[in-house]
Design a protein around this nucleic acid. Structure first.
Length: 973
RNA sequence: GCUCGAGUGGCGGAAUUGGUAGACGCGCUGGAUUCAAAAUCCAGUUCUUUCGGGAGUGUGGGUUCGAUUCCCACCUCGAGUACCA
């Protein structure tokens, strides 16, 4: 009976679905284990063979853990909000929900064919109102919270209000906007409700703020950085300008230190932790205040509003990691966008400064970053006062200083910082040297240790560390600054001008945001006629006719119930410009939607208790499953999803909704499977294609050919190619030996490169078990590797051999006789190796181990149940369908399990032996068979007592005996 | 520029608390079977050789009885990140 994989696989996929074999229970005597894949965005293109790689690995691990006696949670779902569905909607008018639904159906069909052990009863979709209801709920919780830097945790905003009314804000140490003014409890009581709300908004963990975005007026939309190429939009090539818009932001920066520290608690790869560390970008240094000098001071005080002058001495604050070099300051540089630039610039310099600011504004941030080499800047004519020498310091502006980092201003120390040095040389500014015995005339000296500071008043003669301490002390004493730790991590903009995302549960009264009461959630996405922004530049939800909130009846009502929507002169909708109609209780709703990462930041918890209508996850379910034990997905989410998800988990923990502080204990990044593209070569300007080896010196244009038209020897199916691309139907082909040979290149697998291999086709031709094992066999899980269908026959042959092992000709033939010693040895060796490999995620080598095992058992003519029955269990995680079929044929009525082999659950059945080479002074003399798990001392004892050893030593005592367990024994004489 | 990772046959890749380098698979060569093909099975396959051997894991050094593995310098490729003060 031959191996009919198609029939077998269909049969068992139906069986698993019908019996809900992989449904996990939320209570069990067994220990729990949670295996999660990064859920996919269901794109229209469907799956290619690269997508399931991580799913196969996690599925093997999940099935393995079940065999080991764990209660395993292994769910799957869809990250179903996103841009492609929306863009498709814009082009075709097809509702994104419909497209998404179709794509999910296709994904599910493809996933099912591969035989995953997902618990589909817990499926989640981020675009499902029953799901995003809770995304909106979490948003409200964030709004109702602030961050206490003293206690290092998020707390309810009501507690902050209490503190304000009892003692004002002077003693509050909170993560907040930087324009907070101090007030007392008395002040607080005199404030109106609106004023109080405006102040609280500066403390909330999600808040409204002006943020700079890339605005494309022609497209009427905001673009992400990667949608801009050379300063114009990728789509259409329209100009893009930097523009400030009111947006929701997440105060993730409050969590910087915890996000950094807790990296030490989790089992992620070092490179991934490193990129999160870089992203958080902690730097320790000092804040230094520079007062304005002479005429500049007068100018600012004269011009400025009275309260600003009286409030405090106008000053420029800078952040520096090297306050010890403060006596090396010879100028300051401000970002062109810095608030003070306009105020301090002298009459003489105004025109030049203005021109420079305009020139930089035109360039996108990305462009500015890419163009590092060009040095540019302008003198403002203004001066600041050095905090210690009291000397004037000229103030320049330059685009090498970024408005978004630190204070948007730097104290320039040309002798210690290369960028300052370059700037100084370019504009011929002085480069005072403050390092003993260092030449700074050619380049800056950035070293810290080993030098002594000179020409620096009270710092002269000190080393870096001493100087650092002393200068911070001095700054604090004189009120010119203080020690400060800065983080690069910025608050995350949370608003998107898109349709296909979660609506904010927010309406506006007098321009102030109000949350919808959670009991009236979900706030469903409204229907719109067009998915593009409105003509007046509002986000797509501005097209909805029913998008106003009736606070009396707590429901969405028609916009007609509102009085009138107003716009500012730029065309922006201003929340404050909206006035309610005689206060009928109907207010405008937020028009932005949430970004893609909103739904994916907490989905791992929803799986624990999917479908709970009352809570995002019940306490019991979360307490039982805790968090994800093993998370597998791509490394492209290193600083996005993985950081945001850690942030939300910490927040929900602080507020008492979760018992854990980290979402993912262990994380593995699977490598990408690349495609092998095929190229045909067309002679420039002619309709003639030349075979690869005939090109020689000819000028040819390579064109992608569909890989399905090329066989394993790189021969092109010419007739097929002509049919595939009708414009080449009349083309001529210059062949070699009658064959047209294509060129090959490894690239990312993509539809546009015609190198996509569909897993459905592989399942059809070779079976899902073959696909699963071959994907594992391709190479190490974490490494990128090209797909090559040719090699698949090796794995397929292995499964055929496995099948044969249980059959004699057409007959199923497994005997109840005892297995031979050789066969037992082979099998136990395999159990040991495979078990170790799985625990180390070396799935590729375990496939090899299976191949060796089957080859050896075949050679031994093993047909004993004693080996073949547990072998089916062992291989089941990799090739579940064939394992189930064989298991059934062996007379078992239940699904494959280790229930019959309790000892297998533990480790492996019996101890294995190994040949130890025994060497003398490095020269190998003989081998000795010893048990693998023997201790070092026992091995040494056994070897020394062996006759052959005694002969070699000939009476003398060895100097040293080196034992490497499982490997070698070396005796040094 | 900085950070991280990787360089092993014709190819994908094994082997790292230092211990028989090239497991396993693809491909290739030869053989068996077959009228023939497919499929299957068996043998061989790092290079070199005067058949005794000799060389060999990107390059050059070092530590060691012993190095693909550890250390130093360099070369190449890949990934991430980027004027972070």
């Amino acid at each position: 009976m031959s191996y009919h994989f198609n029939k077998i696989e269909e049969k068992w996929q139906k069986y698993w679905a019908k019996n809900q074999t992989f449904q996990a229970k939320n209570d069990s005597d067994k220990p729990k284990y949670y295996v999660l894949d990064m859920f996919p965005y269901p794109s229209g293109a469907g799956l290619h063979v690269g997508h399931p790689l991580g799913y196969i690995a996690s599925d093997i691990y999940a099935r393995f853990k079940r065999h080991k006696g764990f209660n395993v949670l292994h769910p799957q779902g869809y990250d179903s909000f996103g841009l492609p569905a929306e863009q498709y909607a814009i082009q075709t008018g097809q509702h994104p929900a419909v497209t998404t639904e179709n794509n999910i159906a296709r994904y599910r069909e493809q996933l099912d064919k591969i035989g995953f052990s997902f618990d589909w009863s817990r499926e989640v979709r981020t675009s499902d109102p029953d799901y995003y209801k809770w995304t909106q709920w979490i948003f409200i919780q964030l709004f109702e919270s602030w961050y206490d830097l003293e206690a290092e945790k998020s707390r309810p905003i009501t507690e902050l209000e209490k503190t304000f009314s009892s003692e004002g804000n002077s003693r509050v140490n909170a993560a907040c906007d930087d324009d907070i003014e101090e007030f007392s409890a008395e002040d607080w009581k005199t404030y109106s409700e609106d004023e109080k709300e405006r102040i609280l908004l500066k403390y909330r963990l999600t808040y409204l703020a002006e943020a700079e975005v890339n605005w494309c007026p022609q497209l009427g939309t905001v673009l992400a950085n990667d949608e801009i190429v050379n300063g114009v939009s990728e789509r259409g090539g329209y100009p893009v300008v930097r523009k400030k818009m009111t947006q929701w932001s997440m105060r993730i920066s409050a969590f910087s230190e915890r996000l950094l520290q807790d990296l030490n608690k989790i089992d992620w790869t070092e490179s991934l932790k490193e990129s999160q560390r870089n992203w958080i970008g902690k730097s320790v240094g000092a804040m230094v205040h520079f007062n304005l000098y002479g005429e500049t001071l007068k100018q600012v005080q004269g011009d400025g509003p009275a309260e600003l002058v009286s409030a405090s001495q106008p000053k420029i604050s800078v952040f520096t990691t090297r306050p010890d070099t403060i006596f090396g300051v010879s100028f300051m540089t401000l970002a062109p966008e810095h608030d003070l630039v306009e105020k301090i610039t002298t009459e003489d310099q105004k025109a030049e400064v203005q021109a420079y600011i305009e020139a930089t504004a035109k360039r996108s941030e990305r462009e500015r970053m890419a163009d590092v080499k060009t040095i540019s800047g302008v003198f403002t004519g203004a001066y600041a006062e050095h905090p210690f020498t009291k000397e004037p310091v000229p103030i320049w502006i330059g685009d090498y200083v970024l408005a978004g980092y630190g204070t948007g201003a730097v104290m320039a120390v040309p002798c210690g910082d290369q960028r300052d040095h370059d700037f100084a040389r370019h504009f011929d500014l002085p480069i005072p040297n403050i390092f003993e015995n260092v030449d700074v005339s050619q380049e800056a000296y950035a070293g810290k240790e080993g030098t002594v500071i000179a020409n620096s008043d009270f710092l002269s003669g000190l080393k870096y560390k001493e100087a650092l301490q002393k200068v911070i002390l001095e700054l604090e004493k004189t009120g010119h600054g203080y020690g400060k730790t800065n983080y690069r991590l910025r608050d995350a903009v949370f608003s998107r001008q898109r349709y296909w995302g979660e609506p904010f549960p927010v309406y506006y009264v007098n321009g102030l945001p109000k949350m919808i009461d959670p009991k009236h959630l979900p706030l469903r996405l409204p229907e719109v006629e067009k998915y593009l922004p409105t003509e007046t530049g509002e986000p797509p939800l501005g097209n909805a006719s029913d998008w106003a909130w009736d606070t009396k009846n707590n429901k969405v009502v028609s916009n007609k119930m509102l009085k009138q929507v107003q716009h500012d002169e730029k065309g922006d909708v201003t929340p404050s410009g909206v006035e309610a109609h005689e206060d009928n209780g109907v207010y405008p709703l937020e028009l932005n939607t949430m970004p893609g990462w909103a739904g994916s930041s907490w989905y791992l918890f929803r799986y624990m208790d999917a479908g709970n209508p009352d809570k995002f996850v019940s306490e019991e379910a979360q307490k039982y499953w805790e968090n994800v034990d093993l998370y597998i997905g791509g490394s492209e989410h290193a600083t996005g999803h993985l950081l945001y998800s850690r942030f939300w988990t910490k927040f929900l923990h602080d507020r008492g909704y979760l018992t854990v502080e980290e979402p993912f204990k262990k994380l593995i990044n699977q490598g990408m499977i690349l495609g092998t593209s095929a190229f045909v070569y067309r002679l420039e300007g002619e309709n003639v294609f030349v075979s690869k080896n005939q090109i020689k010196g000819n000028n040819v244009q390579p064109i992608h050919a569909d890989v399905s038209l090329v066989n394993a020897s790189d021969e092109l199916d010419i007739e097929g190619f002509k049919k595939w691309r009708p414009e080449f139907a009349d083309a001529k082909f210059l062949t070699e030996d009658g064959k047209y040979i294509v060129g090959r290149e490894v690239e990312k697998m993509s539809k546009s490169k015609y190198n996509v291999v569909n897993p459905d086709d592989i399942c059809e031709d070779y079976g899902a078990d073959t696909l699963r094992m071959y994907e594992m066999f391709l190479g190490p899980l974490e490494q990128a590797k090209p797909w090559n269908t040719a090699g698949i026959t090796g794995v397929h042959n292995f499964l055929k051999k496995l099948w044969k092992l249980y059959h004699n000709g057409e007959e199923f033939a497994v005997s109840d006789d005892k297995a031979s010693a050789d066969s037992l040895k082979t099998f136990h060796k395999t159990i040991k190796k495979v078990t170790e490999d799985i625990e180390e995620f070396s799935f590729n080598t375990s496939v090899s181990t299976f191949m060796i095992c089957v080859n050896e058992l075949t050679a031994q003519r093993c047909n004993s149940r004693e080996v073949l029955e547990p072998l089916a269990v062992l291989i089941a995680p990799y090739a579940p369908h064939i394992a189930e079929e064989l298991w059934e044929k062996l007379g078992n009525s239940e699904s494959v399990s280790t229930a019959k082999y309790p000892e297998y659950q533990e480790k492996y059945l019996v101890e294995s032996k190994k040949n130890y080479p025994v060497s003398f002074n490095g020269k190998m003399r003989f081998t000795m068979e010893l048990p693998l798990d023997m201790s070092k001392d026992e091995i040494e004892k056994n070897v020394l007592e062996d006759e052959r050893t005694k002969n070699q030593l000939d009476g003398s005592t060895p100097k040293k005996v080196i034992v490497v367990p499982g490997k070698i024994v070396n005796i040094v004489v």
